[in-house]
Amino acid sequence: MEWVDFFLQQLITGLSNGMIIALIAIGYTMVYGIIELINFAHGDLFMLGAFLALTLLGMLGLGDWSGASAWAAVVIMLIASAGFCGALNWGIDRLAYKPLRSASKLSLLVSAIGASFILVNLGLFWGGLPMDVFAGGVAAAAPKDFPALVPNTNLLGEESLVQFTPKDVLVWVVTVPLMIGLTWIVTRTRLGKAMRATAQNPVAARLMGIDTDRVIGATFLIGGALGGFASVIYSLYNNTISFQMGYRAGMDAFTAAVLGGIGSMPGAVAGALVIGLVRSMSDAYLETRWTNTIVFGILVLILIFRPSGLLGSRVKEKV
């Protein structure tokens, strides 16, 4: 039954795409939950994570990657990009957002937009590095091929029309434990408790002896690190990176966060899976050129009937 195969294929593709979006979306939703900032720079931070990963690969040498050495390289990249993006996000908060804690929400937003522009420009410069992986730096702005470390073999057998590859496995193997770990941090640790308290009422949290600046810093660090993990998974799954990839990735993730109910982590994951699936189904059964319209159309419809998103709680707006 060919149409069944086709449908199953779309499910696999949609869910894998959705899980990658989810990792980025959590970064948005965490920061939003704690300081009510739509962190425009988050998508571009994610982009820089991918550039770091590709640079590392270039430094490790681009030989024949297979078996254990390939998986070792994946682990090194994951750790390095997560550390890098976490630290960078923390630094951006220090320099660009922290001085504006008492200013209006929208000044903060403009600062984030400024940070986003700077990160995009750094990505352009980075793409011009004189390394083989960047084509020697001649075409700084061009999209870069990300080597296929993870094989594209079909785990269901080469005859099967449906493709399920180690790439799809990788996406789930990395994202699911990360999400479980994160949920544990937020619900079970002291830091998590402090984060929730700060999100609910920063003044009261400070009165209770919580160092809210440290808590906010930690939130940026964790959110950034998730962006870093996502950047490596994205790169290994799609095999192309470019200095402009943060825009769409950021927009999808932000939409997912809002769709699920901004501030809610399970919501962000649910929203991301919905977006991944809708994109796949629309590409496959309708026309690609209408996919964006359908995604945002569904978003508007859902919000009209559920104004706080899929899993968001009905909280009075803080203005």
């Binding site: 990839m245 769409r248 990735a249 999808d252 590409d283 050129r289 996919t291 964006n292």
Partner: peptide, 20 residues
């Protein structure tokens, strides 16, 4: 005959449609 979304992260679904 299809127009693509030039900013998409990948075209796997569309390409599967081509394959099928």
């Amino acid at each position: 005959f299809e127009g693509i979304d030039t900013k998409a992260s990948n075209y796997k679904s569309l390409c599967q449609k081509v394959k099928f």
